[in-house]
Amino acid sequence: MPEGTARRDLADLVASQKDKLAVSYRTLASRTVDPERPDEGPQWTRGTLENLINGKPVKTPGPERLRGLAAGLGLPVRLVQDASRAQFHGIDSVRVEGETLDGDTLLMLRHYETLSPEDRLKLRKIAEDWSRMGSQTD
């Protein structure tokens, strides 16, 4: 990515899913209710969603806003969280799955895509070893 160019991971995810659902900003905003706190109502406003998609500054969303956005978009929360981490914190999330792992092991790395395939493999092996060590101490 060219220097000075802001990442748009969450913005692009929201724009793409909004188009796929064929909904207006207002309709999408009304759907952004956090399933864990439904009484609090929508977590996003039409204007904030529009600003996000159009590249204008928005505050980094917290967990309740991300859960609400995931609900509104009809996407898994983890996908929305990963996109938010990438856009607002420059952290790439990589899922490592394998028989030796207890579920998914999530590695959050800055600039993961810049690592060589060999280095990515080394990190996967570290995650597997770490997972094995943790299960032995339980």
Rank of each mutant, 00 (worst) to 15 (best):
R85E: 12
L49H: 05
L49P: 04
S16T: 15
I126S: 02
E50H: 13
P76K: 15
D12I: 00
S93D: 08
G98R: 11
L79V: 06
I53P: 02
N54P: 00
T114I: 04
T48D: 10
S84G: 08
P42H: 06
A29C: 11
V96W: 04
I91Y: 12
S16D: 14
T114L: 13
R110D: 08
Y112A: 13
V96Y: 06
G103R: 09
G98D: 01
M133L: 08
V77I: 07
G98T: 08
A70Y: 15
R8T: 15
E3W: 14
A71Y: 09
K59I: 07
Q81A: 12
T137C: 03
L101G: 01
S131P: 01
L121Y: 13
R110S: 12
V23N: 08
A11K: 02
L28S: 11
K20G: 05
M1Y: 08
N54Y: 07
G90E: 00
L49T: 03
P38A: 01
D9Y: 08
H111S: 10
E64C: 11
G62E: 11
E64I: 03
L49F: 02
G90F: 00
P57A: 03
E118P: 00
A127I: 04
R110M: 05
A86V: 08
D129H: 01
V80Q: 05
G41L: 05
R26C: 09
D82R: 04
T48R: 14
D92R: 01
G55H: 11
P76M: 14
L106R: 12
L73H: 09
P61G: 07
G41C: 07
W130F: 06
A71L: 05
S24I: 02
P76D: 15
L69H: 10
R46Y: 10
V33C: 04
K18F: 14
K122H: 07
L121T: 03
V58M: 10
A11P: 06
K20Q: 13
R7Q: 11
